[in-house]
Design a protein around this nucleic acid. Structure first.
Length: 171
DNA sequence: CCCTGATTCGC
DNA sequence: GCGAATCAGG
C-alpha cells in the first residue's frame, strides 16, 4: 500500500480526531500502526492537540535490521463512541466455530466503528462478527475487542443472542 | 498482558 | 520516504 493523497488525507483526519495509530491503521488497511506513526511524524503532525516536547527518549543502541524477524502482530483497537452507518450484516461465513445466528441485513442497524479485520487477523479477543458480503472485497470482521471470553464484542453479542422477535422492540 | 506514541535506522 | 524493531510508558 502506498500513501496516496486520499489515504494521507484520511490519516490526517483520523489523527486529528484523536484515533490511535492502530485504529487508523485498521481503518486505512494495509498498513501497520508503526507505518501510521512513522507517517504522522514525517508529516510533522505529531503532538496532536496539547503538549509540546517529549520528556523522555534517550536513544537507542544495537539495532537488529528488519531481516529474519517474524512477528506480524497486528494489534490494537478499541471501540469508539462513534458509529458508522448501516453495514449490511450477513449470515454466511463462520469464524472459528463461533455461533452465527441469522440476522436480516437489517434496516437501521448501526454498527460500531470496527477494525475491519480479515479472517487471518482475528485473535481470541477480537469480535468475530462478520460484516458485509463474504463474496465482496468489502467483507470483514468487526474486530473490536470481544467480550469476556465471548466471540463477539458487547454490541454484537447483544444482537447474536437475542431472538429476532425481541431484537426488534429492544432497539 | 493489553495497549499507547516516539525513535532509530536499514532499506 | 517508508516502516519494523525497539523503547518507554499507561
Amino acid at each position: 500500500m502506498n500513501w496516496t493523497d486520499e489515504r494521507v488525507e484520511l490519516l490526517k483526519k483520523l489523527w486529528a480526531e484523536g484515533l490511535s495509530a492502530s485504529q487508523i491503521a485498521a481503518q486505512l488497511g494495509g498498513v501497520s500502526r508503526n507505518a501510521v506513526i512513522g507517517k504522522v511524524h514525517r508529516l510533522k503532525l505529531s503532538s496532536r492537540g496539547r503538549a509540546s516536547a517529549a520528556p523522555s527518549r534517550p536513544k537507542k543502541t544495537a539495532h537488529s535490521g528488519a531481516t529474519g524477524k517474524p512477528v506480524p502482530r497486528t494489534s490494537g483497537g478499541r471501540i469508539l463512541p462513534q458509529t458508522v452507518g448501516a453495514n449490511a450484516l450477513n449470515t454466511a461465513l463462520d469464524a472459528d466455530a463461533a455461533p452465527r445466528p441469522a440476522l436480516r441485513p437489517s434496516e437501521n442497524v448501526v454498527v460500531p466503528i470496527s477494525r475491519r479485520l480479515s479472517l487471518a487477523d482475528l485473535t481470541e479477543r477480537t469480535c468475530k462478527w462478520p460484516n458485509g458480503d463474504p463474496l465482496h472485497e468489502d467483507f470483514h470482521f468487526c474486530g473490536n475487542e470481544s467480550a469476556e471470553s465471548g466471540p463477539y464484542c458487547t454490541y454484537h453479542a447483544r444482537l447474536a443472542f437475542q431472538p429476532a422477535s425481541e431484537r426488534r422492540r429492544q432497539r
